[in-house]
Write a protein that binds this DNA or RNA. Structure first.
Lengths: 139, 139
DNA sequence: TCCTACAATGGACAATGTCTAAGTCAAGCG
DNA sequence: CGCTTGACTTAGACATTGTCCATTGTAGGA
């Protein structure tokens, strides 16, 4: 049984077949799926699930802090079930493949006070870009 | 006369009224405009300019490396004429305001070899998020 | 089992960006 | 200066991603 599903259940979520399927798809393999990819996989298990429900469910999981939204390009948002280990992302500029990475150092500390313009800075997001080995081989 | 315009001219660009207007709008004040905002401002100087031309022109300036594309949210891409000074961005989570910032340190060096998964990493993009003073005041 | 509030549905709508076919024009050339 | 030509512009259709809403369905408690 899925950890993600367990955590959601423990928060008093009303459990429905749709929500179960979305959680299972997300938790299944730790790739970073788009909402439409989640929908496609969910449909194969529960054919009548609607697109709106998938969007709603993903949005709720993000609000609950159980799933992270990742936007590495200007295309679709991606959903990352690995919300409880802070991490950043490494993206292939050619094929869009994404890996979680854990850089050393704390970029938040690297932003001096005189570069904060009075903002209350609470979060930082780091995206590394490059070419993955597969794309490099077929260059 | 605009620096940006000068640089573009020096690259053998065919100079048209439309391209001139787009370059002037971008270079005018160093905010980070969306494509549609650029279009709106361009229209006020050259009423018959089309949306497609603005998109095309911005895309060409990005390809030439004279302008940077910035995607800080899921909404529109923004265009940053400050392409020749490397920098990162600080974004207000509430109103979307963007400031250029220059953090200390080099995040590229913070990614150890065993976290690179064979990628050739060439670039890193850092987005700080927080609340700007204006939004904090009206909270 | 029945109720009721919460969830799901599907289809319209919105925002952003891309493409295409046809017309227009900048700039080099004679 | 006036052609010629191919690059540029245009308008609008189309694509993608995401949101909204009114209606229908259902989980879970009494």
């Amino acid at each position: 049984m899925s950890d993600l599903l367990e955590r959601l259940r423990g928060r008093g979520w009303r459990m429905t077949a749709q929500r179960r399927v979305v959680a299972e798809v997300l938790d299944g393999d730790h790739v970073h799926l788009t909402a439409d990819e989640v929908h496609a996989r969910a449909v194969s298990r529960l054919p009548e699930i609607s697109r709106a429900t998938v969007y709603n469910t993903l949005g709720e999981m993000v609000s609950l802090g159980e799933v992270l939204e990742v936007s590495t390009d200007r295309r679709a948002k991606r959903y990352d079930p690995n919300a409880h280990r802070p991490h950043h992302h490494l993206v292939c500029a050619r094929c869009g493949a994404i890996r979680d990475v854990h850089p050393a150092g704390n970029p938040l500390a690297d932003l001096p006070a005189d570069e904060r313009y009075g903002f209350t800075v609470s979060d930082v997001e780091v995206t590394y870009r490059g070419i993955c080995p597969t794309c490099a081989a077929t260059a």
